[in-house]
């Protein structure tokens, strides 16, 4: 694949996932457990999008496996914390 095509594909994935996240945010309304699922989809798409920027726009794909793993852990850790804090109200409701 040429460099131009690789960058275009990354842009296309980023744009598509932005639309997916917009749809996910409002698709869960009125469905039991839908908001929790929406939040999970939002954090999941954010993870893929940030990886696309790191790997293709910032060329992290050329770095050693250790650095790639570090950024995966940093981003996944942050997004999982955000997901966890966001889900506390739902988990508390289910517990009572």
């Amino acid at each position: 694949m040429t460099e131009e095509r690789r960058l275009f594909r990354a842009w296309l994935i980023l744009m598509s996932l932005t639309l997916v996240s917009l749809l996910a945010a409002f698709g869960g309304e009125g469905i039991e457990g839908g908001s929790a699922l929406s939040l999970a989809v939002l954090m999941g798409t954010a993870f893929i999008k940030t990886r696309q920027v790191l790997d293709h726009f910032l060329d992290l794909r050329e770095a050693r496996a250790g650095w790639r793993a570090f950024f995966t852990l940093l981003l996944a850790g942050l997004l999982l914390i955000l997901l966890g804090v966001g889900l506390i109200p739902t988990l508390m409701q289910e517990a009572t």
């Binding site: 945010a25 726009f57 109200p89």
Partner: peptide
Amino acid sequence: WHMVDLIWLIIFPVIYLARGL
């Protein structure tokens, strides 16, 4: 510039889209 982009990709879903919980 990509760093600015990267950060917005996390801000946007958290502040604008994560609603209704």
